[in-house]
Design a protein around this nucleic acid. Structure first.
Length: 568
DNA sequence: TTCCGTTGCGCG
DNA sequence: AAAGCGCGCAACGGAA
């Protein structure tokens, strides 16, 4: 059953039960305590909660110890539909359901970004109560019900309503997972982190000062440039210093410096690595982001055009590998680290339906299985695949792509067609129907110019190629994100089933990390076997739900470890 | 002082 | 012939 709910003052809310088509009868029912009502509703049978925004509503429920099984997140689904249909004020695609675009203004009007929400909060604090009165709540409920019903119609009007409906469901589930993971937090040993920093950087310096090891390297770098003061953090100063010594460099990137013969280079490479650790994940980061033994990043579901997640603050998806040793399970608990192997090429195999390619993707090591086509060289197979998916063709890649084209024509044609669509300004979609953004007005203006061998045409050609690479990659990356989201939703459901405590709060086994093709579950040691099985089952289910009948396998490697550093 | 584009590098 | 995809964050340095 679907039940719409709009939060009111305090813990109150208005609730309305919905028919299958999303319509509701009569006025909303007033609830004095939303968390209580949600918890007791679940006792009567499965409920899909329909609300405007999990990120707004769900954290309070979690704080009250109430988790929900399913929801329809009107904000997230609206973003999917808007991506498909375009917005009235921009020249987007006009797909099925476009006539109903804008029907659910409720979600679209809400600022999606963090700064936007902050501003709204500040505004409320300045000008009045943040919480709506009953009248406003009633209007919000009506608007919610109408928006949701409109979304159901727009989903049904999709050329593939089953797939797109699945996408809406798992995107909504993602919103629940994101809130739960933030509330739960990644188990993080600040003492291990601190020890690691001290061993690499020296003793923690007073605020604003450089760690000893960095200061020492900086002075040795200056000495290597003949005693001239050089700030190693400044590309401009470094370039100038090298020029003074007769060395011209195109940039100060480490892979460029690596090939430069100068006594400062090894020092600079070491400095860059340590400075990066200090500025990005040093003591300041530890102070700001880790408390009570947990790292609690804020996840942004659908924050990436491809459907991957982003995070706000803390750089949770860029945690350097060296810090993984600070991610340690609680005593008596373990981390189940699960990683989808070679996900994107497998997704391409399933998308393209290339028989020979798909057969290879039915095995454990896809690249090894393809090696035969490339003279038995696994590395060449990998380069060919990556080039096909990213649009690269440097070095020997073009030769390898020719081999790919000959041996696996449908796989090649699939990404080529996506690239062509992009270059022509069209929109492509993932397997479950997530649409890539349309080209910008600037892009259209630039590429509309007729072909002429002048500078403007060079830019136009570059823009065309760039968009081709984007859409070429989008179909693969976004479909991989589809798969990962289905896996995540299925794993969440299975983990809840493993947790036999009636309350089912955040104290039991649960997801604590999700990074594109990798998840971490924190659970009691005794449950590890069940969790590993749940991961495998969820992965199998994801392959079936997203791609249907395909020989392609999506193997997931799992490691049961105490520390994240011990996985892999 | 604040703002913003650029540079560089971490992750997938 | 050359070009590879997607992000977030911090520091620099010039502009406002």
């Amino acid at each position: 059953m679907r039940v719409a709910v709009a939060a009111g003052p305090g813990r109150t809310a208005l609730l309305k039960e919905l028919a299958d088509d999303g319509t509701g009868q009569g006025a909303g029912v007033l609830l004095n305590d939303l968390p209580d009502a949600v918890a007791s509703y679940a006792l009567n049978g499965p409920v899909r909660w329909v609300w405007a925004d999990s990120a707004q509503t769900y954290p309070a429920l979690l704080r009250a110890g109430v988790r929900v099984d399913r929801c329809h997140d009107v904000r997230l689904v609206e973003a999917l539909l808007t991506g498909r249909d375009g917005r009235p004020d921009e020249p987007g695609p006009a797909g099925p359901g476009a006539a109903e675009r804008g029907a659910g203004g409720l979600a679209a009007d809400r600022p999606a970004s963090g700064p936007g929400r902050l501003a709204a909060g500040q505004q409320a604090a300045l000008f009045g109560p943040a919480e709506p009165g009953l009248g406003e709540t009633s209007a919000a409920l009506d608007q919610l019900v109408a928006a949701h019903a409109g979304q159901l119609r727009r989903i049904a009007a999709d050329p593939h309503p089953g797939r797109f409906g699945l996408l809406a469901a798992v995107e909504s589930a993602g919103g629940l997972v994101a809130a739960e993971m933030q509330a739960r937090g990644v188990p993080w040993r600040a003492d291990v982190h601190d020890t690691l920093l001290a061993s690499l950087l020296g003793a923690r310096p007073p605020a604003g000062l450089q760690p000893p090891r960095l200061a020492e390297l900086a002075s040795r770098i200056s000495a290597a440039f003949g005693g001239r003061p050089v700030n190693p953090d400044s590309p401009a100063q470094l370039t100038k210093a090298f020029a003074t010594d007769g060395i011209r460099i195109t940039s100060t990137r480490s892979w460029v410096l690596r090939d430069v013969d100068h006594p400062a280079v090894p020092l600079l490479l070491e400095y860059k690595e340590l400075a990066r650790l200090h500025t990005a994940n040093g003591w300041a980061w530890l102070d700001e982001w880790v408390s009570g033994g947990r790292f609690r990043p804020e996840y942004v579901v659908g924050g990436v055009v491809s459907g991957r997640w982003a995070t706000r603050g803390g750089g949770a998806l860029q945690i350097p590998r060296v810090l993984r040793r600070a991610v340690v399970a609680d005593p008596g608990w373990v981390l189940v680290v699960a990683d989808a192997a070679q996900l994107e090429p497998r997704v391409l195999a399933a998308l393209a339906g290339d028989h020979a390619f798909a057969e290879a993707a039915g095995t454990g090591d896809l690249y090894q299985a393809l090696a035969g086509a490339f003279g038995g060289d696994r590395a060449k197979a990998k380069v060919a695949l990556l080039s096909a998916m990213y649009g690269g063709a440097g070095g020997e890649a073009s030769q390898l792509l020719a081999v790919l084209r000959r041996r696996f024509p449908r796989a090649d044609q699939y990404v080529e067609a996506a690239a062509r669509a992009g270059e022509e300004g069209r929109v492509v979609r993932s397997r479950l129907g997530r649409a890539c953004p349309p080209p910008s007005a600037e892009w259209r203006g630039l590429t509309a110019a007729p072909d002429e061998p002048d500078a403007a045409d060079q830019r136009a050609r570059r823009s065309l190629r760039a968009r081709g690479r984007f859409t070429r990659n989008f179909v693969v990356q976004a479909s991989a994100a589809d798969w990962a989201l289905v896996l995540l939703a299925g794993l969440r459901r299975r983990l809840a089933e493993l947790d036999d405590r009636p309350a089912g709060g955040l104290d039991g086994p649960g997801l604590v990390f999700f990074q594109h093709d990798e998840v971490i579950v924190h659970c009691p040691e005794a449950m590890a076997g069940d969790v590993v099985a749940a991961v495998a089952a969820a992965a199998e289910e994801a392959g079936r739900l997203v791609f249907g009948d395909t020989p392609v396998r999506f193997p997931v490697s799992t490691a049961v470890v105490s520390s994240y550093a011990d996985a892999k």
